[in-house]
Nucleic acid binder design. Structure first.
Lengths: 213, 213, 213, 213
DNA sequence: CATGAATGAGGATTCATTCAT
DNA sequence: CATGAATGAATCCTCATTCAT
């Protein structure tokens, strides 16, 4: 852990340097893992002197923690974007979330890497990601959907959301080995498109005709 | 890559040593990742001289490759165990697979770790896991189930299986961070039991009353 | 081969360190050979941290290559010093070269060691020593001497020079074992003096009364 | 140094094994030097178990000493072959010796390598090569030749012999780098032939018309 | 005689981190 | 703020040598 005073840069130039380090660090950690990441590499790729990293982030762990916390913001960000969903979206909530999460992973290809690192390194104790209760809005939509018969009333929102997250996350993270396992080229966009369509039908396809309506 | 001549032990004693190294290596790699794993650590934990590792596996990479290939056998093993399923199981095929895969991950807590390492280290080129087409038997059951109306005929077996694998894998691998995300203690067996039940209903709950029969 | 980025020191202090490493390395390699040389030893003798060697030279091989290339400069240097010879020196060209080469080996006691290492390690592929044609000046003097009858016209300059180099090199390198072989203490300066005088007479003694002059 | 009792094999099979180790060791030491030679390599190349080496030769040093002493025998051998020279050969003694030594190096391409190793490793203390006074016979021929006017009476036999040995040894050992130095392809047999002819004339060409005086 | 297993002391190389300017 | 030099503690890997059978 960083014991040194980490300096928050005052000048604009310093801010730029710090940002450049950070961006490179995200890539480096996500590609190589914590142990495999190299301070030298980060410094070189950011085209700054190694010492800057220590000035801004304390040590390797400190740098990683910032990178890790960054993923927190991404989740919050996604959660935020879901606020635009309204009652009209309830019937297709599953499909919509599936799409949103799929897009999210495509926009943030490093996300799952950083995220899973934390699970791999089970003994570390990094700050918890969420302070406030997340998914409140979508949760409400789901529960309203349950009452209206769109969703099985015996299936909790947590399970519902878990499935969506699991599938999109797993696709993003394991398409390489799963391509072998399933003998299907999951990296191809059309294959992905098709499979996600099928999965949507499998998961949510049977009931959107719901309620007494 | 291990270019060195690796020695296959001739005597029973050597075989034992090799196995001890291997077992420890699975744990070490799965816990720390490739870069984080330590040969010294493995040697110490296996209570053997470091050099033995190099004699039997060539180098760190060679040891990892063996560990990695070992996961291949696990998958095949599981596939094999699915051969006992018969037509009577078709209606509940989804639920059954969900259980089997869940059990599999519980019996092999290191599996997902090794498996995902390969996806994290995208630039490496390890031998493909599967030679022959796997899941042939279950695939046939599924397709028969489709004809009988148990499963959506527009959902391919690959998508069906993908969902099962994704969910069980993701639960096994990310319960820690997902517990935060969902504000639910996924490590608790009862929570898991409940959630898996719900997920089963969500995925396969609507149709097992199927067919014209 | 050193594929690593080797850093060329920018500051004077770095330059000094690099030079100190180099000097020690010449000694270490020349005394122990490539395989016998120890990086630790070099670092200790140069009173620097081992890591500096890797920073400046990449790896052991890179360090050796620099040492090896250094011998190239020495040869060029000697060649350069021969430029002061003029037509007046032609009659005694053999004797003069013998002396110059003898002195050269005495001033550079490590030279033959490094030089022969390359011949011992026949499978390595180090940069060739000479870019331009060497010994042009002395060669011309010799050929002029041939025309004037000082040297046998059927003996090429290459053979002439080879003999000079061979004898001085061999004396410098093998006096130890040759002392046993010849039962003569070749390490003693007076013995060397005497023998070199005799060899000079043997090689070039018969004809300096040459030409029509 | 070998502290262990080295076993002299009694059986024929043991003798064969020992010989095979030895032959391989000569090659290995001569190619890689003492430090670079590998016991494992020798064992593998000799297709025997490493332990045999220790049984027969004590340790690496002991093995090398035997190899080194073997060169002694080679020198004696050559000396022995020179006993067939007689008074008729005196006029061409230089040329003859040059040829004999050249042939010797061609028949024993490892000789110079082992030989020079001893000079490179100056701090070691291996047994002296020669017990008895060598070259007695040739020495007498030379001195008789001096009296008959074939050789310069002021040039000692030692110097005479030194030149012959130096040139042939140097050619055998440094043709690779000397090819660069002289910009001549010394590895080609025809080049060697020509150059040795020229060197013979340079060294001994002027006086073999002697005697009768 | 012969072999495979095992070991401890290196030996090259790397890496996070600090120092000095 | 910024940089190049420097360091000590690993970390992977090798090698001569011994043990046990």
């Amino acid at each position: 852990m960083a014991k040194l005073k980490t300096v928050d840069p005052d000048t604009k130039k310093g801010e730029e340097t710090r940002q450049r380090i950070f961006d490179v660090a995200v890539r480096e950690f996500s590609r190589k893992g914590y142990a495999g990441a190299r301070i030298d590499q980060i410094a070189a790729a950011a085209k700054i002197n190694k010492q800057r990293i220590y000035a801004y982030f304390g040590d390797k762990e400190g740098l990683f923690v910032e990178v890790w916390q960054h993923t927190s913001d991404l989740i919050d960000e996604l959660d935020h974007e879901l606020l635009d969903l309204c009652d009209d979206d309830i019937p297709n909530l599953g499909q919509i979330l599936l799409e949103r999460y799929t897009d999210f992973h495509e926009s943030h290809p490093d996300f799952w890497r950083i995220f899973i690192l934390e699970n791999l390194m089970g003994d570390r104790h990094h700050p918890r990601l969420h302070k406030s209760r997340p998914f409140a809005h979508v949760g409400e939509l789901y529960e309203r959907g349950q009452k209206r018969g769109h969703f099985d009333p015996t299936v909790s929102f947590e399970s519902f959301l878990f499935v969506v997250i699991a599938i999109t996350f797993f696709y993003a993270s394991n398409w390489r080995t799963m391509s072998d396992t399933l003998a299907t080229e999951l990296s191809r966009p059309d294959v992905k498109q098709k499979m996600m369509g099928e999965i949507g039908r499998l998961l949510f396809g049977s009931r959107p005709d719901a309620q007494g309506e």
